[in-house]
Design a protein around this nucleic acid. Structure first.
Lengths: 338, 338
DNA sequence: GAGTGCAGTGACAGCGCTGTCAAGATAAAG
DNA sequence: CTTTATCTTGACAGCGCTGTCACTGCACTC
C-alpha cells in the first residue's frame, strides 16, 4: 500500500535516500538510516518488485524454469524454491520449460525479455542442458544450479552429498544385522544415481560384506514401474536379500508392492529404504525409511546465492554442499533370524 | 528484445499508436493497424508485462495462490495453470499460500501490493476460504475459482461434473459384469467426494443393484494411508467385492496394495478404479483405470475467464462445467466367474 | 586560509507502457 | 462553403524505483 515517496515524506528525506537505505548503501548516516527504517516499519512498506524489475534488469529479480512436477522430487523442489522466495520477500518469476519443445529457445528468450530476470535458479533436469547454459551465458544471466550432474563454469551450485548419504543409510541397514542387501540403481544418466550406488557399495566393502552383483540391479530409470521387475528378480532369487535400498522413494515403493504380492512382510522379513523423502514415502504403508533431501535449505541457499551479497566475481564455480538427514521410519527393521 | 518504441519507429507511428494496436483499440485505421502489426512481427516484439503491471494494476495480470503440491491433484493443477498462462503469453505471479499460517492475511496483502494483481486464480482448498474471499472482495480483486465446494457470488468458477463421471465409471464397471462393487469415500468436507459417492450409488440403483452400506466406506480423508484400512475391511469381508471404485487415485493405489498383500490379483480377481488421473495412477502397476480431470482445459478456461473479453458485469456467478474423460487402463477387467 | 578529499544527500531523468487531453483530418450536416 | 460531429493520431505525464551527477558540508592537509 505504502509507496516509497510516502516513506520519504514521513522520514523527512528524499526518495532516493529511502532507496539507498533499502539497498544497504554504504554512505548513509546511522541517524538517517534509523529514521528511514522507522518510517518503513510504521507504514509497513514493502518495495514493489515490479517497479524494480522495470529498471531494466533489476539484479534482484529471480527467475525459475519450471519443469513438469510429475515426480515428487520436482514438486518438492519447486515448492521449496517458491517458499524460500516468499520468505525472503523476493519476487519469483516462473516460466514453464518443456525440454522436448522445439520452441524452447524462443520461449526462454521471451521469458527473459518479458521479465528482465537476471538471476535464474535451475533445477534438474534443466540445470544440465548445455544449450540452455550457452543461451543464458550469452545473455549474461547468472544461474544457480541445484543438484546438477556436472559443474558449469561460472555458475555456483548447491547439492547434497548423495554418496555420503547412501553410505550412511547402508551402514544403518548393516547395523540392523542385515547381511544380504540389495540396491536398485536409478537412471544411469543422473550422477545422483551413480553416487548413491557408490555410497552403497562402499559401505558394504567397509563392513567387509560382499557386493553381490545380482543384488545391484537397475532398469535404467527412476520409475516405479521399472523397479517392479528389479525387485521381483531379487526377491525371487535364492537366498534373497533381507533388505533393499532403492535409489529413490518411488522405486522403494515398488519394492514394497512386490514384497506384498510375494507375501513377504515389511519390515519383518524385508527392510526397505528409499531416497528423497518425497510424498510417496509417507503415502506408503509402512512409511518409508528414507534420506531427506534438505529441500528447504537448498532453496534458501539458492535464493541467498542470487542475492546481492555474493559478488559474481566467482569465475570459479563454487559448490555448496548441504547436510542431509536420514529419516528412520517403519519400513526398516532388524534382520530376520536365519 | 524489441521495445515498443522500436516498433513505433519502424512502423512510422507514435508509441501510443502501437499501444493502441496491441490493445485492440477501436479507432485505428486498417492501414495503420496493418503497418504496426507487420512491424511487430518483423521485430518479434512481445510487450513487457512488467511495464504493464507497473501502470498501477494492469487488468491483464493474473495471480495464483499456490498451495503445497503434496497431493498429485494440486501439482497437476498448478502445472496446468502455469502452462495455460505460458501458452497465452500471460504473466503469472505466483504466491505461496499457507492456510495454517496466522500471517496469511499479511502475506496475501503484501503479494497484492507488490504485484498489483487484479485477477486471481484460486484452486482448492484456497477457493473455499471465506476469509480470503472477503479480503479479495474488499480489494476489488476478481477471482476465478477452480472446482470450489460452493459458489461465491461475484466469482465465476470452473469445474467438472464429478457426479456424472462417477456414474459413468460405475456404469462401466457394472458393464464388465461386476455385481458386488465397493466404494471408498473421500474427505466428507469436500463436495467432490460427496458427488462422486452420489454418482456411484445412483449408477448402482439405475442398474438395479443393491447398495451395500458395508461396501461404501470411508475414513474421512483422501489419503492412501486411511484407505488401507477401508480396503482391508472390504476385501476380507465375506463375499468380498469384485470391484472397488475409490474416490481418488491415491486411495485406489492403496486398494491395489492391500489386494497384493492378501494375494488377490488385480484385475483378474479384483478390478480397481480411481479418480483424478494423477501421477500415481500411472506409477502403479497395473496402471489405474481412472477419471481424467480435464486439468489443461480447466486451466485454459480459467485464463480465458480472467481475460479482457469477459466483462466483469456478472454479478451472477457463472459456473462452467468441462467435460471429463474416462481412462481405461489395466486395473479393471471382466468380473471373475463365481 | 585556501586546497583536497570524501561522507552524506538530493534533483533529475528514464525504464516500457498507457490514460488523458487535445490537435489535425476527414466526413456529415447546414 | 462554412460548421459541427466523428475519426485517427500524437504529445505529455507519470506508475515506483534506481543510476548518474552534482552539490553541501566537514575533516584534513600544506
Amino acid at each position: 500500500m505504502a509507496t516509497i515517496s510516502e516513506v520519504a515524506e514521513r522520514a523527512g528525506v528524499s526518495v532516493k535516500t529511502v532507496s539507498r537505505v533499502m539497498n544497504n548503501y554504504e554512505h548513509i548516516s546511522a541517524k538517517t538510516r534509523k529514521k528511514v527504517r522507522l518510517a518503513m516499519d510504521e507504514l509497513s512498506y514493502a518495495p514493489s518488485s515490479i517497479a524494480r524489475q522495470m529498471r531494466l534488469g533489476d539484479p534482484q529479480s529471480i527467475g525459475m524454469l519450471y519443469g513438469d512436477p510429475g515426480s515428487g522430487y520436482q514438486a518438492r523442489l519447486n515448492h521449496a524454491v517458491l517458499k524460500a522466495c516468499s520468505d525472503a520477500r523476493r519476487y519469483l518469476a516462473v516460466e514453464l520449460f518443456e525440454e522436448h519443445d522445439p520452441e524452447w529457445r524462443r520461449q526462454v528468450e521471451a521469458f527473459l525479455d518479458r521479465t528482465k530476470v537476471q538471476n535464474l535458479i535451475l533445477v534438474p533436469p534443466m540445470c544440465d542442458s548445455t544449450e540452455l547454459h550457452k543461451l543464458l551465458q550469452e545473455r549474461g544471466v547468472r544461474t544457480v544450479l541445484i543438484s546438477p550432474s556436472r559443474q558449469i563454469s561460472g555458475s555456483s551450485s548447491i547439492a547434497m552429498d548423495d554418496r555420503l548419504a547412501a553410505m550412511e543409510m547402508t551402514k544403518y541397514i548393516i547395523g540392523l544385522g542385515h547381511k544380504r542387501i540389495g540396491h536398485i540403481v536409478g537412471h544411469p544418466g543422473h550422477v545422483a544415481a551413480l553416487l548413491r550406488r557408490q555410497g552403497f557399495e562402499e559401505a558394504l566393502v567397509n563392513a567387509g560384506l560382499e557386493v553381490r552383483q545380482d543384488f545391484v540391479v537397475g532398469a535404467g530409470s527412476f520409475f516405479f514401474k521399472d523397479a517392479l521387475a528389479c525387485a521381483e528378480k531379487m526377491l525371487t532369487a535364492e537366498n534373497r536379500p533381507t533388505a533393499i535400498f532403492a535409489s529413490n522413494d518411488e522405486m522403494a515403493a515398488a519394492v514394497i508392492m512386490v514384497a506384498n504380492r510375494l507375501g513377504i512382510s515389511v519390515p519383518e522379513e524385508l527392510s526397505v529404504a528409499g531416497f528423497d523423502n518425497t510424498s510417496i514415502s509417507q503415502t506408503m504403508w509402512p512409511e518409508l525409511t528414507t534420506v531427506a533431501q534438505p529441500f528447504e535449505a537448498i532453496a534458501r541457499e539458492a535464493v541467498r546465492l542470487v542475492s546481492d551479497d555474493v559478488k559474481r566475481d566467482l569465475t570459479v564455480s563454487a559448490t555448496r554442499v548441504l547436510p542431509h538427514e536420514i529419516l528412520y521410519r517403519g519400513s526398516t527393521g532388524p534382520a530376520p533370524k536365519e
